[in-house]
Amino acid sequence: MSVEAGVVKAGQGGQPGWAARRLAGIGAGALDNARAARLLYSIFIRTLYYSVRGRREKGAVLRACYGIGNRSLFFLTAVMGFVGMIMVFHSCTQINRITGDLHLVGATYIQLVVRDFAASVGSMMLATRVGAGIAAEIGSMVVTDQVDALRMCAAEPVDYLIVPRFKASVVMTTVLLVWAMFVMEVSGMLTAWGMFNVNPRIFWNLSMVDFRDLATGLTKCLAFGAAIPIVSGYCGLTTFGGAEGVGWATTRAVVWSCFATILLNFIISTTALYVFWA
């Protein structure tokens, strides 16, 4: 049945046809998405506002730093160490098949890690751990009325719940991702040395890393560190239902945080390309 037929049927029978219902469904979905985008934007702006003008809770940022930073350290070190080993192993294997000259593998690998890989892979790991944690904590506060209780006590939920995590995440994500760069480089160097006999002095070649790579990599660290708590906080604050709702909020937080980091990565990489390398 065509759209036209559906509309005609709607007009004739008094009941909306399938096409009209379909269009209404698409329209409702679009409106829901527009509302969600507006709310996410509102949370972002309020987070920035309360980061400067909000009320400071003693020790809240430090506690969040510990939760986001210290408690992610082992997980991130292990994952990024293995990712570095896998990347160098495959790079060296491929190079050996073509030219067999491995003396620049370290230089190009380190450039790739500093400019992009440590930040993008590491931030997705943090999105799974930190993002899920933030959404679950705030989501369970929503379904048990604790967020409403905060509002009854004149505590703005964005200020009280998201801002400390935002500040902590910007600092600790940057620190963790810089650490992840180092871990990836060391694990890659050891892999190249142990399996392909590449001398560590030759591998540890920083000649291809310059200010532009560092600026791009650090900008990504800061942007991802800011995005994860805002997206996850939004998912937590829009939780509804009981335990199932919290589960969905957690899933949404991981998915949307990862999506946000990939989107930001694209935007920052493209901008850097035009600014630094055009």
Partner: peptide, 19 residues
């Protein structure tokens, strides 16, 4: 609303104590 809410005290059904 926040200003007006400051004149209210509320006990929630699930208590809503901060864990």
């Amino acid at each position: 609303r926040q200003k007006l809410r400051s004149r209210f005290g509320m006990l929630f059904q699930q208590n809503a104590l901060f864990d």
